[in-house]
């Protein structure tokens, strides 16, 4: 399902002395099946964009097209359930949204809101609990007895159980330990491939953006600063620094290497593997001479 933002403006508390402009003429398209990363400074409007993707917010100006629905400024939207089912959002610290007596009931809450039968929802719960890396006997526990990391997984399972076509992640790994982080990000990457989802990741981690995203949008003060492939955007190191952003560690290492050795590598490397390959070719060239 394609999502398209056209000239979207959004003002918080429009028409009061507290009015604040959060988005300014934001336009971009997320074609079906893309893994898109949105990066930018705190307060650059990332989270505001994210809430437009399933019509939790309605633009002050411009329009958002989600599949065959168009959400525009002037129309009051009714019956958004279909949009919400197809676009699942995992908010920051999603563990705060748990409320049921058992993990199973909590996971079933989403699907059942969208009219899935109880039996089917329970079936899905069994499936997704394993997907997020927890065992099935967790289902009978109370979500409030779990550890922070487990609660996070349960909350994510609750969103996955809705079987969305687009999944939106707002810093899904904030506050997790390094291993939990990798596991979580790998899980989303697998899901993305297996189910042919569109994935939209809002993150501060340049590493995650470099590792997983096909496309990247850089936000700056409520505007789209640039959109492109991670490789291309991360090669503009100086520009990113000026926005107060950084580049992945690998890119920083490569830059340092190029500066000190005077040898240019063939391309901007985004992963350690790529970098190792490039360095090997350089090394071999040296041997041959």
């Amino acid at each position: 399902m394609d999502i398209q933002l056209q000239e979207v403006d959004y003002h918080y508390a429009a028409g009061t002395p507290f009015e604040r402009k959060a988005l300014h003429h934001v336009s971009f398209t997320i074609p079906s099946g893309t893994y898109l990363a949105i990066i930018g400074h705190t307060g650059s409007g990332k989270s505001t964009i994210l809430q437009h993707l399933n019509a939790l917010l309605q633009p002050t100006n411009g329009q958002v097209r989600i599949g065959d629905r168009t959400i525009s400024a002037d129309k009051k939207e009714k019956n958004l359930k279909d949009v919400r089912r197809r676009v699942g959002i995992v908010f920051q610290f999603p563990e705060h949204q748990l409320f049921e007596e058992t993990v199973e009931k909590d996971i079933c809450y989403g699907p059942m809101n969208f009219g899935v039968s109880e039996a089917e929802a329970k079936q899905r719960a069994k499936q997704v609990i394993r997907q997020v890396g927890l065992s099935e006997d967790m289902l009978k526990k109370s979500p409030f007895d779990l550890s922070g990391g487990q609660m996070r997984r349960v909350a994510i399972a609750g969103v996955l159980a809705m079987e969305p076509e687009v999944i939106v992640l707002d810093e899904p790994t904030a506050g997790l330990d390094p291993r939990g982080r990798t596991e979580m990000m790998e899980m989303f990457a697998t899901l993305h491939k297996e189910r042919n989802l569109s994935t939209i990741l809002v993150t501060h981690s340049m590493e995650d953006a470099a590792l997983y995203a096909d496309e990247m949008v850089i936000m700056h003060q409520g505007k789209v600063y640039q959109k492109g492939k991670p490789r291309e955007l991360f090669s503009k190191r100086e520009e990113l620094f000026q926005l107060g952003l950084s580049v992945p560690e690998v890119v920083r290492f490569q830059h340092r290497f190029e500066e000190e050795s005077g040898i240019k590598l063939g391309k901007t490397c985004l992963t350690t593997n790529e970098l190792v390959e490039q360095l090997q070719t350089v090394y071999k060239r040296g041997e041959d001479q």
Binding site: Q51, L56, R84, R85, I89, F91, H96, Q97, F114, V159
Partner: peptide, 11 residues
């Protein structure tokens, strides 16, 4: 925030 999170889950 919680309201929005639950709305995203169909509340």
């Amino acid at each position: 925030k919680i309201m929005k999170a639950q709305m995203a889950r169909g509340a």
